[in-house]
Design a protein around this nucleic acid. Structure first.
Length: 485
RNA sequence: GCCCCCAUCGUCUAGCGGCCUAGGACAUUGGCCUUUCACGUCAAAGACACGAGUUCAAAUCUCGUUGGGGGCGCCA
């Protein structure tokens, strides 16, 4: 069997959208699964909107996600160049071939003239499709002369055959396009650059792409592309049109739904594995219904047969859950590193403090890891161990615990024990608390709750003994002292 | 307006004619664990859009209706 070659072909006009990331991922997994090649191609034929910055952002987002490619602008390859803006000569030569073959022709109409035709057709209740007869009317010797004098180039039109086309889609089965659903269309624009539908086909043929996996917003375009493949007498690749990702309101996912770009999730402290894992499950499912799936296993099981054709709503709640799962699995060292920018930004600690007390912070992170779903939550969780606060003796809930039988005595006793606790280990603190309870016999829950409130100003939090350990002996003493004595 | 795609719990999905009294995950509710919270764990609640066919048998096949999405550019 021929080597599998797939491509991800984004246009560099903005950040990498999660939908694009999912398409890239599916291509990547498909390539890896079949031991094939992944190609990155930059579709920058829209000179107005394409920017170099976007291209760089795209590449860095993909890299962050861990999606890499065998051929592309950064790594080169035998089928380059991989930027469409650098392939304009190729498109022109190929268009000349089509003209030679009589399936393409030049157009000398002015935009206004085309608009008139367009409007007239609509008014007559006809579909706004151009035909060679309409376009060629303007191809007169005078017009050619005018164009030459003004330094204008004609556009090149494709003569769309009037016949049915059948798209055999790996995800959707057969899609039939009835004859006459589109008219002739532009291949090469007046600025000399190719149009999307034309450039993709030329590139996919030349780059020997075997499987085209892309968003289903391209389904209608496939009709035109099929006709171009036919005109070149080229074999069509297998197509797989993946459904769109929608916002919670069922509308196409956009900025107004909140975070939609890979960068945004990165900046909010998502782990790339979590995003990848969430995205792969949007449209694909593991044969054994696993949810947390390591990349190697995705590659092992990935296939188009298990891709769902219906569109999916992007559910941030589940993504958060998944991120939490990955945070819990991750090495604390890694979470520490990822936390640093967030800690700095929150001003909970300074850079010097972070560096000076790395070991302490690591212990704290170890403790709060189970309750965090985004790295951005770490500073506020950390602040329980650090923050100074005014203590409110009048707090009703606190009074309830504090005034319970034996609690005050127990705390006083604990204070004495802490005074003499030079070891200050989790074990020594545990022993001391246990002996307080044994000797003073306070109500356990009240005792613990009062103590937690005194030390952290909160009723809920991580394991109390470890929290005490991390707060430090001096501060623990001070806080008990100011309430109990 | 024309063309195309899609349709199972709130959400992501399993299901590819009988194994379905429709399974799993997130979210929700309750129990257990725990000093508390979280984690973990157990359980509950919750869906085949509608209507016709085909068939001994339909969530699964066909057609229609409705709803949603996409396309109809010298954007990609």
């Amino acid at each position: 069997m021929k080597e599998v070659r797939v491509r991800f072909a984004p246009s560099p006009t903005g950040f990498l959208h999660v939908g694009g990331a999912r398409t890239a991922l599916f291509n990547y997994l498909f390539a890896k699964h079949h031991n094939g090649k992944m190609i990155l191609r930059i579709e920058d034929t829209d000179a107005e909107r394409s920017t170099k910055e976007s291209e760089e952002q795209l590449i860095s987002a993909l890299t962050w996600l861990g999606i890499d490619w065998d051929e592309g602008p950064t790594v080169g390859g035998p089928y380059g160049p991989y930027r469409q803006s650098e392939r304009t000569d190729i498109y022109r030569h190929k268009a000349a071939e089509l003209m030679q073959a009589g399936v393409a022709y030049e157009g000398y109409a002015y935009p206004q003239e085309l608009e008139n035709i367009h409007d007239a057709l609509l008014e007559n209740g006809e579909p706004p499709h151009y035909t060679q007869e309409m376009i060629s009317k303007f191809d007169t010797p005078q017009r050619r002369k005018e164009f030459a004098e003004k330094g204008m180039s004609p556009v090149i039109y494709f003569k769309m055959p009037r016949k049915d086309y059948i798209l055999k889609d790996m995800i959707r089965g057969e899609v039939v396009f009835k004859e006459g659903s589109v008219g002739d269309f532009v291949l090469i624009r007046s600025n000399g650059l190719p149009t999307y539908n034309y450039a993709v086909v030329v590139d996919d043929i030349l780059m020997e792409i075997t499987h085209v996996i892309r968003g289903d917003d391209h389904i209608s375009n496939t009709l035109r592309q099929l006709a171009i493949y036919e005109a070149f007498d080229a074999q069509t690749p297998y197509f797989g049109h993946v459904s769109m990702i929608l916002g919670p309101d069922g509308k196409r996912l956009s900025k107004r739904h909140g975070a939609t770009s890979v960068e945004e999730f990165k900046d909010r402290g998502y782990l790339p594995e979590a995003l990848i894992n969430y995205l792969v499950l949007l449209g694909w499912s593991h044969p054994q219904a696993k949810e947390i799936i390591p990349l190697t296993e995705m590659i092992e099981h990935f296939g188009m047969e298990r891709v769902n054709p219906s569109s999916a709503i992007f559910d941030e709640v589940k993504l958060r859950w998944m991120n939490g799962m990955y945070i819990r699995q991750a090495q604390t060292e890694r979470i520490f590193k990822l936390s640093v920018p967030f800690i700095m930004e929150s001003k909970v600690l300074t850079m010097d403090q972070i560096q000076g007390s790395k070991k302490w912070i690591m212990q704290a992170i170890e403790l709060i890891k189970t309750s965090v779903e985004e790295i951005s939550q770490i500073p506020s969780e950390l602040s329980i161990f650090i923050n100074e606060f005014e203590f409110d003796l009048q707090n009703e809930e606190f009074k309830g615990y504090f005034e319970a039988e034996g609690v005050k005595d127990g705390l006083k006793h604990l204070y004495e024990l802490i005074n003499n606790d030079m070891l200050w280990t989790v074990e020594s603190i545990t022993d001391n608390i246990k002996s307080c309870i044994k000797i003073k016999k306070p109500d356990k829950k009240s005792f613990y709750m009062a103590l937690r409130k005194i030390l952290t100003n909160q009723f809920h939090g991580p394991d109390l003994v470890k929290t005490i350990h991390l707060i430090g002996r001096v501060r623990v003493q001070q806080r008990i002292e100011r309430v109990v004595f």
